[in-house]
Amino acid sequence: MTSASTAARRGASTRRPSRRRDHFAYPGWFYAPAAVIYAVLFLVPTFASFYFAFTRWTFTTSEFTGFDNFITFFTQPRLSTSFTNTLIYATLTSGAKVAIGLVLAVVLTSGIFARGYLRAVVFFPVLVSTIGVGITFKVLLDPFDGVVNKALAAIGVRGPGWLTDPDLALYSIAAVDVWKGVGLATLIYIAGIVAIPDEYYEAARVDGSSAWSTFWTITVPLVRPATVTVVILSLIGGLRTFDLIWAMTGGGPGFASDTVASVIYKQYAAGFYGLSTAGNVILFLLITGIVLPLFLFLNRKSKEL
């Protein structure tokens, strides 16, 4: 009996780790639905676009043309302007979202009055349709009947053509983009700041550190993972931006606010499907070539801290 009970205990002890592993490990079929959705919505369209970029295709036929679509795309008028605009737009919007989002997060994690309500107000624009925001601000920024210029005229200031001046159009759209998207950056930063242990701030207060010094020596370094997330998400969004620009200016005036994505859409709207697909491939490679090295660099720097 003793030997049997000992053997049973040994068997139980040898089986416990496997049951524990089974408890924490998910079976393979658990990942199947997500894998199917990912393959159907991302992998298949991606590989298909790489193929169709080398063809002249319609919805019923396709003809292999080699690199003709890519050569034609790079000969588009003012293409260099659209590339420059894309880089400027992405840099401005991502930088502004990082700076403003961090400041707002610091304010909204302090003891400010109505903190919860203000957080909701800051995040609300993220929930609004981008096309709706674009149309709304197109009306507000109208050089003649817009509310913004009328308000400036009331105090004796002549408002510029926010969306009709080639020198201002892209920057006006970028400002609207920041207004709409900074709420998400703020939310990410709030999560990062709340995760910082209070002991760091208590030690800083004991040492007599000023609020500014505490911000630079504690908050900024410890929210670096949040900064990486905000930079990457904002940069990807800025590089592939289309809907807000199209709703506000359609890429105009002239080519002043054209981006790579708007050029691609114009080709698609004109019926050049293979050419627009080649442009999408180029944009995909551009985003990957910029974001992936930056992501690896920022993550490596985070691990060194």
Rank of each mutant, 00 (worst) to 15 (best):
T2H: 11
A4K: 15
A4H: 11
S5L: 15
A7D: 01
R10M: 13
G11S: 09
R15C: 03
R16V: 13
Y26R: 15
G28E: 12
F30D: 01
F30W: 05
Y31D: 05
A32Q: 06
A35K: 01
V36P: 09
Y38S: 11
V40Q: 06
T46S: 12
R56C: 00
W57G: 08
T60W: 10
T60A: 14
T61S: 15
T61Y: 05
S62T: 04
N69T: 00
F70C: 08
I71V: 15
F74A: 06
T75N: 14
T75A: 15
T75I: 08
S80C: 02
T81C: 08
F83L: 12
F83W: 12
F83R: 02
N85P: 01
T86M: 07
L87F: 14
A90N: 11
A90I: 10
T91G: 14
T91H: 07
T93I: 13
G95D: 03
A96W: 06
A96H: 09
K97A: 11
V98L: 15
I100V: 15
I100Y: 01
G101P: 07
A105S: 09
S110T: 09
G116N: 11
Y117G: 00
R119W: 06
F123A: 13
V128Y: 14
I135M: 14
L141K: 00
D142T: 11
D142R: 07
P143R: 04
D145W: 10
G146R: 00
V147I: 10
V147M: 11
V148Y: 09
A154H: 12
I155L: 04
R158G: 10
G159D: 13
P160Q: 02
T164K: 01
L168D: 01
L168E: 03
A174V: 09
V176H: 04
D177S: 13
D177T: 10
V178S: 02
V178R: 00
W179S: 07
G181F: 13
V182K: 00
L184F: 15
L187C: 09
L187D: 07
A191Y: 06
G192V: 02
I193Y: 10
D198S: 09
Y201I: 04
V206E: 06
D207Q: 10
D207I: 07
S209C: 09
F215A: 12
W216D: 13
I218R: 02
I218Q: 07
I218A: 04
T219D: 03
V220P: 05
P225T: 09
V228N: 04
T241E: 11
L244P: 01
W246L: 00
A247L: 02
T249A: 07
T249H: 06
G250W: 09
G252A: 01
D258P: 03
V260N: 08
K266Q: 15
F272T: 03
F272E: 13
G274P: 04
L275G: 02
A278C: 02
A278V: 11
G279H: 08
N280A: 13
L283F: 05
L283R: 03
F284H: 07
L285W: 06
I287V: 15
G289N: 06
I290E: 14
L294D: 01
L296D: 02
L296Y: 14
F297Y: 12
L298D: 11
L298V: 08
N299C: 10
L305Y: 11
